[in-house]
């Protein structure tokens, strides 16, 4: 029983809502972790503020009759920071691009009550462009992937995806396999 619970955090069937019969997940993509690191490190900086204030004004704080209140307010402050940190982490982890053997599904979560789901049938893909622009994307190996369908249709842009070259190759492989009627194997580029 305990092993089954722990297994949830180790392995996943990578199933998703609306998955069709015989539809297999080839790739599960998220933005580069660096994108989540920016707000989380800002919040971590704010977490240091009470510690610094405490260290600087140690004698005044400890001898104050407000000491108990200060400690309580500090915990409330940390509770708020905790919520903000996980709000950003949730937004990061819920923004996904799922490549299956039949389609590509992009889920964009802009807030708790603002979700957009776009999908594109894999046989409609005509060409894929990888865009790596800037010092950070080049150094950390992330970039945008532009998926072009028939000329008049919408262009899909998956932003800040890690290792975009590998992802592009995996999508192209899935496209050619789908066209040939072969099921592609699942690849673990990003969990």
């Amino acid at each position: 029983m305990i092993e089954r619970i722990i297994a949830v955090f180790r392995e996943s069937s990578r199933s998703f809502e609306g998955q069709g019969k015989g539809e297999e997940v080839v790739l599960l993509l998220r933005k580069h972790p660096f994108i989540a690191l920016v707000p989380v490190s800002t919040i971590s900086f704010f977490a240091l503020v009470p510690v610094l204030v405490f260290l600087i004004f140690y004698s005044a704080v400890v001898s104050s009759s407000y000491f108990g209140l200060i400690l309580f307010l500090a915990t409330v402050y940390y509770m708020a920071l905790w919520l903000f940190a996980f709000y950003y982490l949730a937004m990061y982890t819920l923004n996904t691009v799922v490549v299956t053997n039949k389609r590509i599904i992009e889920r964009t979560q802009n807030g708790f009550f603002d979700r957009q789901v776009s999908e594109l049938h894999i046989y409609r893909i005509q060409d894929i462009t990888v865009l790596v622009k800037g010092i950070m994307p080049t150094t950390l190996h992330y970039g945008d992937i532009l998926v072009q369908t028939a000329a008049s249709e919408k262009e899909f842009i998956f932003r800040q995806i890690p290792h975009p070259e590998e992802v592009k190759n995996a999508i192209m492989k899935a496209v050619s396999m789908a066209n040939a009627g072969v099921k592609p194997a699942s690849e673990a580029v990003n969990n």
């Binding site: 949830v8 955090f9 199933s15 599960l28 949730a90 982890t93 819920l94 979560q109 708790f112 969990n191």
Partner: peptide, 12 residues
């Protein structure tokens, strides 16, 4: 949101 809409191991 993490448990209901998350896909894969990371959200869990």
């Amino acid at each position: 949101h993490l448990t209901r809409f998350g896909i894969g191991v990371q959200p869990k």
